[in-house]
């Protein structure tokens, strides 16, 4: 499914935005201007952008936890101001400042993050089931290579294949889960090999190539909407930095090698995308400069919005009123 020029422009723009948002979060956590953790997505923002930019409005989107889903949020058109306000515990946060980094935008059919890695393997069955009943919608469920250690992954794949549910299992394989490497955790290098046991179509793609990701996901989406069932899309990506800001960057108990990390930097998805849009004359350097300028302005605007919003400190009574539906 070849991409048109306008589609490529949009992907490129979203990638640059997502990259700026990730850097904004990095800066803020280091300045103490963010609540909780930040798990940087540096060098790995293409997969989320590619997977989410062309979904339908009715599709359900579960973001990966890395970069706290920013690639997916950028692709989906989420209000990043309200996203950041949530991460800073502000009144205008998308969950009223309660969720810390477990944000959600139900109106965008992004039903929310959990601190339990792999939690989504449970509701994804119902997301798929409901989507099939309703028709004309599907599920993009993203998560990491590590999450496929959870037994629930198998239940989800079993149900999805048995019932031909319209789900894309989108795996961002960065070869790491905290200090564990992929070979510590999985007997096979490709996570998508798990899907084969269920007879699920599976593809391995370059997760650094935002265009390839988008093309593959659009094809898998079409497959799902045609009633043909789930697809497993494995996007090979990388982790440039430590698992979360402040944690040592180890592989098992040893520091990851600087030379290896330098090698990874050569696969920067923004650099790759830039050379392609220039080579294919999709964008001029001048247009690219403008995209950067706009992204920078958006970051400033987003930060101002979040910083200006008052701290959310409702009374216990107000909070108790939110536990049950009245």
């Amino acid at each position: 499914m070849a991409l048109g020029k306008e589609q490529m422009k949009l992907l490129y723009r979203n990638l640059v935005r997502a990259d700026h948002f990730d850097k904004m979060m990095m800066n803020r956590i280091m300045q103490g201007k963010l609540i909780g953790f930040y798990h940087p997505g540096d060098g790995a923002m293409a997969a989320g952008v590619g997977a989410s930019t062309f979904l339908g409005d009715d599709d359900i989107l579960n973001p990966h936890h890395r970069a706290h889903g920013l690639g997916y949020a950028a692709g989906r058109g989420v209000d990043i101001g309200r996203y950041l306000a949530e991460h800073t515990g502000k009144v205008d946060g998308c969950c009223g400042g309660r969720s810390s980094f477990h944000w959600s935008f139900p109106e965008k059919k992004m039903y929310g993050a959990s601190g339990f890695i792999g939690w989504h393997f449970c509701p994804v069955v119902g997301w798929g089931w409901a989507s099939k009943r309703k028709g004309n919608q599907m599920v993009l469920m993203a998560s990491g290579d590590g999450s496929y250690g959870q037994g629930g992954a198998h239940e989800a794949m079993l149900f999805a294949m048995n019932w031909k549910l319209p789900i894309v299992f989108f795996c961002e394989n960065n070869g790491m889960a905290i200090h564990s490497t992929i070979s510590d955790m999985h007997p096979m290098p490709d996570i998508s090999s798990l899907a084969q046991g269920y007879g699920m179509p599976a593809v391995v793609i370059d997760g650094q190539d935002v265009f390839a990701v988008a093309e593959t996901v659009m094809a898998a989406r079409k497959h799902a909407l045609a009633g043909k069932g789930p697809t497993f899309v494995e996007a090979k990506t990388l982790r440039l930095r430590e698992h979360d800001v402040g944690t040592p960057d180890l592989a098992r108990a040893e520091p990851r090698e600087a030379a290896y990390l330098e090698e990874l930097k050569k696969r920067d998805p923004v650099v790759l995308a830039t050379s392609r849009v220039l080579a294919e004359k999709v964008l001029t350097q001048k247009q690219i400069d403008k995209i950067y300028k706009d992204a920078k302005a958006e970051v400033e605007q987003v930060e101002k919005f979040a910083d200006d919003s008052p701290v959310a400190q409702p009374s216990i009574e107000e909070l108790l009123a939110g536990v049950y539906v009245a």
Binding site: R98, V311, A312, V323
Partner: peptide, 15 residues
């Protein structure tokens, strides 16, 4: 903790 999920953010210290 009152009978509510413990919120994060700025509410945690007083809840």
């Amino acid at each position: 903790i009152p009978n509510m999920p413990l919120p994060g953010g700025h509410m945690e210290p007083y809840v």
